[in-house]
């Protein structure tokens, strides 16, 4: 088997909070797993079980207390923010609440264009083509490009967030309950976009959810987390 895309070994995260940082919470305890290229790994557990913490640790948005994270064989546990920057394009995250990731003062066009400006050298014309084809890919029409996030529904905004991520063709995506605040019918649209994209591109996903049924429709493998610990690792095929 090829090298795993992500390898997590004995990851632990302890939060210190409250007055004089006296409140100690072991949010993630000795968690190990691997994620292979192109794979969708489900991470399920009740709220407060440590799922978001794991997602953020893997992306190095927060520092682990102990343990090791490697990306394509490279140990990224202790790399600096600056060293992480070139990897940010390939490692993306989508949150539960689309509004938190969209600048309310920007039009949809600019929102989708922004990552291209940040990470690519494309000409304005090339960007324009990409933006228009992306909008149709997520099932919206070009008339939405001139609108603002507040003029769109939650599900439409979440599709914009997804467009903004996918337009960079990332290798790895942490999806942190991206549909938890949406209706089932809107949720199904997001899941269909992800499924279709995965048929056409190589994208590995860590899909965080508390909904077992949802995880089953999308994921190749599922890890169950309880109180910061992995409970059992089961293959979807054998369950």
């Amino acid at each position: 088997m090829s090298l795993p895309l992500i390898e997590v070994k004995n990851l632990t995260k302890v939060y210190h909070s409250g007055l004089f940082k006296r409140e100690v919470k072991v949010a993630v305890h000795d968690v190990s797993f691997t994620l292979h290229t192109g794979e969708t790994l489900g991470l399920i557990g009740e709220s407060g079980s440590g799922k978001t913490t794991i997602g953020r640790l893997v992306l190095r948005l927060i520092d682990p207390t102990s343990g090791r994270i490697s990306y394509k064989g490279r140990d990224i546990t202790h790399v600096s923010r600056k060293e992480m920057r070139p990897l940010r394009r390939d490692m993306q995250i989508i949150f539960q609440d689309p509004e938190s990731s969209l600048n309310p003062k920007m039009r949809i066009y600019q929102i989708i264009e922004e990552p291209l400006l940040l990470y690519t050298e494309l000409s304005p014309k090339e960007r324009d083509e990409k933006i228009r084809s992306m909008v149709s890919y997520i099932g919206l029409t070009e008339e939405y490009l001139g609108r603002y996030p507040y003029q769109l529904s939650g599900g439409q905004n979440q599709r914009i967030v997804l467009a903004r991520i996918l337009i960079l063709e990332p290798e790895f995506l942490v999806a942190d309950e991206p549909t938890a605040s949406l209706d089932v019918s809107v949720q199904a649209q997001i899941i269909e976009i992800l499924k279709r994209w995965k048929q056409e591109h190589t994208l590995s996903i860590l899909f965080i959810s508390h909904d077992e049924d949802l995880v089953k429709t999308l994921c190749d493998r599922v890890i169950q987390i309880h109180d910061g610990r992995i409970q059992d690792l089961q293959d979807r095929n054998t369950s």
Binding site: V184, Q187, Q189, T217
Partner: peptide, 11 residues
């Protein structure tokens, strides 16, 4: 049918 239990099919 859009429910994950029933196939998660989008309308």
């Amino acid at each position: 049918k859009a429910h994950p239990k029933n196939g998660c099919k989008a309308i």
